[in-house]
């Protein structure tokens, strides 16, 4: 196969970027999309040109490090896969393919196709955990979890934190990422004690990072390589509302930065 790639090239953070056309000839349909970029980079390097910077690590669809917008779609045309698991058999000989980084305010471009996704870590820091110091756990079988709950929690927990949901969302919302973690922990008995505080703190951090609100468009779930369902966002919203209600009952009122955020508002800020 011969293809033409039009790739976003940007020398560094905050610098202007533009699309550059690169032809890649003689590739196999069994190659992954990232292996085509490898081949291109070998040729650019041999020709004394600057290779294309892009992130990847496990190359088996689980680490969440890779992620490209391919022909306008996060992770490309095939559903339920990451960019590293997209193979050239999904394309035709002679195709012209646009390749861009995730584009969202909270994900600044570092170089070419590499973006900074540390905002997602900060959402987890706000409460995406169960507080259980090492060594203090009870015997594993003292906690019974109904099989269906365990399965549903697992489905949400398979989120790989790639950020495709944000890249696809017209509002630049990370609601699917946020909802996946709130659903995973909220469905388990171990997650109950911190359920209210978790929901309030995580959504507050989500908004403070500049991610937009969810308006239930569903682009996120359409591109999610792990098929995280839109339902997790509903569960997240329910937990936030319930937490606000509980806070009202206790007449404490939520802390100032835990207002429930852009719960159902539109795009954030600019």
């Amino acid at each position: 196969m011969n293809i033409t790639l039009r790739i976003w090239r940007q020398p560094g953070p905050g610098r202007p970027g533009h699309m550059v056309t690169h032809r890649v000839d003689d590739i196999s349909p069994d190659m992954s999309f990232l292996e085509v970029l490898d081949v291109l980079n070998q040729r650019l390097t041999a020709a004394g040109e600057d290779p294309v910077a892009f992130d990847s690590d496990c190359r088996e669809g689980i680490c969440g490090m890779c992620g490209l917008v391919i022909n306008g779609i996060a992770h490309g045309p095939q559903a339920s896969v990451t960019t590293c698991q997209l193979h050239m058999r999904s394309f035709a000989d002679g195709d012209v393919i646009d390749v861009e980084p995730w584009r969202a305010g909270p994900f600044p471009v570092l170089k070419d196709l590499v973006v900074d996704r540390s905002a997602l870590d900060r959402i987890i820091q706000a409460g995406g955990y169960i507080s259980i110091p090492t060594g203090s756990a009870p015997e594993a079988h003292s906690i019974l979890v109904p099989k269906d709950d365990a399965e549903d929690a697992f489905d949400a927990a398979t989120c790989i934190g790639c950020g495709a949901c944000v890249a696809a969302c017209p509002n630049g919302s990370a609601a699917l990422f946020l909802g996946a973690k709130i659903t995973h922990l909220g469905l388990l008995p171990q997650g109950q004690p911190e359920r209210d505080s978790r929901a309030l703190a995580m959504i507050a951090r989500h908004d403070a990072e500049g991610f937009g609100g969810c308006s239930q468009i569903g682009e996120c779930t359409a591109v999610c390589p792990k098929d995280i369902q839109l339902e997790v966002i509903s569960r997240c919203h329910r937990d936030v509302v319930t937490a606000l209600f509980h806070h009202g009952e206790q007449q404490e009122g939520p802390p100032e930065d835990q207002t429930g955020g852009n719960l159902a508002s539109g795009p954030a800020g600019d």
């Binding site: 955990y129 259980i132 060594g135 756990a137 009870p138 594993a140 979890v145 929690a153 922990l185 171990q190």
Partner: peptide, 12 residues
């Protein structure tokens, strides 16, 4: 024990 308490969704 530790991982279950953390919320690791093991098969059940």
């Amino acid at each position: 024990d530790q991982c279950v308490a953390q919320g690791v969704p093991f098969a059940r």
